[in-house]
């Protein structure tokens, strides 16, 4: 790394640190409220489903009457299962009735993200560096990115079906951080005082956040594909709320694209990690526990990407690969940091 300056203040601002911790707790509570609202929205979804269906029918009859020349309107219809209420593009249906519960949930979530942002920034100022120097900071910042990415994505795509998952995940992350890994603001140990901390770890956070999204999609894909099989066999629809979720194939396609991006980011994370390891520990790769598991994750997602081009490995099998890969991401982040002795034991948990 040469002559680049070391980062991280040797003296930290404890008052600001305490304020940040309070704000984190507050944000966690607001997320919990959002989670309850998302759950309520899901419970009420049978009503929503009926309303949506009625409106779709009306829309369809309108469309049949006549369409302005040149304007090609897309009809929301699913190729695999009739009556799926989110189409493969996951675009908003302007004619759909308002999902009041979801709207309030989004509003509450925006509030939580705002509080969360202030908490992350104050933490960063208090520590005099980027807010990802230990597990507490990694998790709180990671949760912020997950929530923020979700809210930004909502502007473009109707992924409200993921609301309860995202809010649930963020609440879990915030609870784990504030209860499990609570760490007051502290100065950085010498090995971490490198500009690589900024880029290597931030890329790891983003890649992990994307893997989290695709994990949720893979789980939904498995549920949806099972439901579709039951429906195709003339069975009863036991999970009507899954009509708010896109078809298994479009979930798979979307997850594949996100995973492809996350895989590139993960590759860069691993390479930059090797560059940093070379500067800090004298070797670019030494099969440290963290390196072993990062390698395993890389290989698993490489397998996932290849699976798509392998007959018999698409669909549910590739979803399982994605889930196993994500389990390794979680293992790499939690168990490897806490249980295994290694260079990456930066948990800050004593």
């Amino acid at each position: 790394m040469g002559i680049l300056p070391a980062i991280g203040a040797k003296e930290v601002n404890l008052e600001l640190g305490s304020l940040s911790e309070l704000l984190m707790l507050l944000a966690a509570m607001v997320y919990a409220v959002a989670l309850i609202l998302w759950a309520l929205d899901l419970v009420r979804s049978s009503r929503t489903v009926r309303e949506l269906e009625a409106s779709l029918k009306a829309e369809e009859s309108k469309q049949l009457v006549g369409v302005g020349s040149g304007a090609v309107r897309t009809r929301h219809e699913n190729a695999e299962v009739d009556g799926q209420l989110v189409d493969d593009t996951m675009a908003y249906d302007r004619s759909a009735p308002r999902r009041g519960g979801a709207r309030v949930a989004i509003a509450v979530m925006i509030l939580a993200v705002a509080v969360h942002l202030v908490a992350v920034i104050t933490r960063s100022i208090a520590a005099g560096r980027v807010p990802w120097g230990n597990m507490y900071e990694f998790m709180t910042t990671g949760a912020f990115i997950v929530a923020a990415v979700f809210l930004v994505a909502l502007i473009f795509k109707d992924i409200r079906f993921m609301g309860v998952f995202v809010a649930g995940l963020v609440v879990v992350m915030m609870c784990a951080a504030t209860m499990g890994f609570a760490t007051p603001v502290q100065p950085l140990q010498p090995a971490l005082q490198s500009p690589w901390l900024i880029i290597h770890v931030s890329l790891a956070v983003i890649a992990s956040a994307l893997f989290t999204l695709t994990f949720a999609m893979a789980v939904l894909q498995l549920i949806q594909s099972r439901r579709q099989k039951v429906l195709a066999a003339g069975g009863e629809d036991k999970l009507p709320w899954m009509r708010l979720v896109p078809s298994a194939t479009s979930l798979e396609n979307a997850a594949y694209r996100i995973n492809a991006l996350a895989f590139v980011l993960w590759t860069i994370t691993v390479i930059l990690g090797a560059v940093w390891a070379e500067a800090a520990w004298g070797r670019y790769w030494g099969w440290d526990v963290k390196e072993v598991w990062s390698f395993i994750i890389w290989v698993l997602y490489a397998g996932y990407l290849h699976a798509r081009a392998t007959r018999g490995w698409t669909g549910n099998r590739s979803a399982w690969l994605s889930i196993v890969g994500y389990a390794c991401v979680i293992f790499n982040f939690t168990a490897v940091n806490i249980i295994f002795p290694g260079y990456h034991s930066y948990a800050g948990v004593s």
Partner: peptide, 16 residues
């Protein structure tokens, strides 16, 4: 580190 109340990090090295 010579700052008190840093969660057991008092006296840990911050620079070599």
């Amino acid at each position: 580190n010579r700052q008190e109340r840093t969660d057991g990090k008092y006296g840990t090295p911050v620079d070599y």
